[in-house]
Design a protein around this nucleic acid. Structure first.
Lengths: 193, 193, 193, 193
DNA sequence: GATGAATGAGATTTCATTCAT
DNA sequence: AATGAATGAAATCTCATTCAT
């Protein structure tokens, strides 16, 4: 339900109004309660839909034969794709992460797990370090670094756009997807740092 | 008012309850209205206090004589210090950034401006690129990369701790502060990438 | 409709839910409105059925040739029979009598009238008093005494069972039917009281 | 709260309207929720007040030195006194007894227990039977008979008044209080029945 | 400064009833 | 006869805000 996603994004769960959502969806308020038992269920279903899609998509993204660089590029692109498809989801997600409830955390955790991404990447980093191609470091730090390089901009875009005077975000994003991988790969390379 | 910060952090602005805040502060609800004009003003004052302190602190942080590395280290440390001092502020800030209102954005923008950090760093990156010590790239991308490497973990710590199985966060943070600078400096170096 | 009677008994007219009644009857809610004009009509029909049966049964109970004792025994037995057949009716009836509406009172009044019982019993008491076999008293008091001796237990059984520690109600009822007549007949006898 | 008692009496718990109760009490609806947490609590407090008074009164009614007849007279009078003081309570009570919830039953049970009445009367009946002054019978039957003779009319007055054509209830009640005791005492006497 | 009571507007939820198929 | 969806009115409850003391 798009109208619901919109209200949850703009006002948050507590600030969202069932009245407004119904009006936005051009249906009678009582119909919301006919299809969903409560505002809470409406909320869960609304974000659950996106979560499920994200899980499915991420799971199918990798065959296991990719190079490290390919994986990084795919992940970087995926984050932006998801946010382009569900622009309002960014708000909802951030609010959830602002004060994460165990239930929601597990939900998101599940998405990552389903993709196999964390374990695969961690293992991969471990191998690369052992092989001497990546400098000695905690693989978890590397993983977090890469994810935050991506998610950080996705989440904070409005602030950064203002501070940095970014006017054409589409263009900037295309650039960023490459920059992120480049910086990261350079950053973790073993060498005379 | 700690009780207010707590409620705003846990429930968000719309979910916060004046009743609960009063009870948490062991005062009569009407007293809140004696000190503040409205819930909105209470909110602004509550977070404004932190904002002001952050502004002051950041402004005084730099004399202009620091090396790039010193600046990066200082910024990395500062983020964690602020969050350690006001742990609940992280939630409040994230909620604000989830659906930023121009007014709040300007507030935060002001903090950065006051510190002189963005312009100084951008200029500095420009110089370093011109001097060939940093690979050719958009200084804004570099700036965003560095900030997200820091802020990303600060904001998403609960999620990352779960995904990565981090149990001792204090320790991990100490490690991260160094890792972030190292990865970034390595990542932006000019060289045979 | 048993499901309706059940809901009216358990929740009362205002507390009964058309949804629940439909579900209990395994039919679609709209079907209820196909058969009955409204909740009110459903209610009237539901209890009207029992009322009509009670009227018919009581009317046919007496030929006019019975002795006083026979009548009393028949009435005492009849109350319990009705409640055994429609156990939930007791609740419905009590609720109605809790705040009797003229319309419902007339309904019940009609049952008594149809049976010819009140006038017959009152006349009979009058004769017995005149003949000196029953002590001088207001026949209406006698009538009420006999009816309450019966109806009182029927209506308050759950409370009495608790207070008196009655575990086998069936057995107790058999005993009560006799006790009631005996006590009453003894109680109204003329003699040296 | 009289307005609440009134609405509960006339409409039952489910049919009572907080709006109406507030209006009847000339207070703001929200004040009801300020003083009572919910409609349910308002209900419990409303009837609890009467229950408590009844408990206290009944407990203090007997010193232990009364003759059987005195006790019976006192009980008979008490029922009518209570109903005269809280005329609407009759409705509320009947509705509760229509579909008794364990919690409410226990409440009422407690009142009887506190008065010591049931155990005292049962014991008394036992003694009288053993002494041959009361005919052999189940004391519980006697007890129920006496209570229903009283409560029956109290509860069913509106119906009986209609059926019997009783116009001056006050007068009738005075008569009934004596009649009930007389009929009962006669009815339980041992003798050639 | 401090408090308990008060209030109006509005939020979520419910429900008898009807409609379209 | 049967159903799922729809609706308007209203019910319970909440909450920011103010008042009287």
């Amino acid at each position: 339900m798009l109208s619901a996603m919109h209200d949850f994004a703009v006002h948050g769960y507590e600030g969202a109004r069932v009245d407004r959502i119904a009006e936005g969806a051009s249906i009678n308020k009582a119909m919301i309660y006919y299809h969903f038992r409560s505002k809470e269920e409406l909320y869960r279903e609304t974000i659950g839909e996106v979560y499920r899609e994200a899980t499915d998509k991420l799971s199918s993204l990798f065959t296991g034969e990719e190079t490290l660089e390919e994986i990084l590029h795919a992940v970087a692109a995926y984050h932006h794709d998801l946010m382009r498809k569900y622009p309002e989801f960014r708000s909802v997600l951030m609010r959830e992460l602002a004060h994460p409830r165990r239930e929601i955390l597990s939900y998101i955790f599940g998405i990552f797990e389903a993709s196999g991404l964390p374990s695969r990447l961690l293992a991969r980093f471990g191998e690369e370090i052992k092989a001497g191609r990546v400098r000695k470091s905690d693989p978890r730090q590397l993983m977090i670094s890469f994810l935050t390089l991506n998610l950080g901009y996705v989440m904070l875009a409005p602030l950064f756009d203002l501070i940095m005077g970014i006017s054409d975000r589409e263009l900037f994003v295309e650039d960023r997807k490459k920059e992120v991988v480049k910086l990261f790969l350079n950053g973790i390379r073993s060498g005379r740092s």
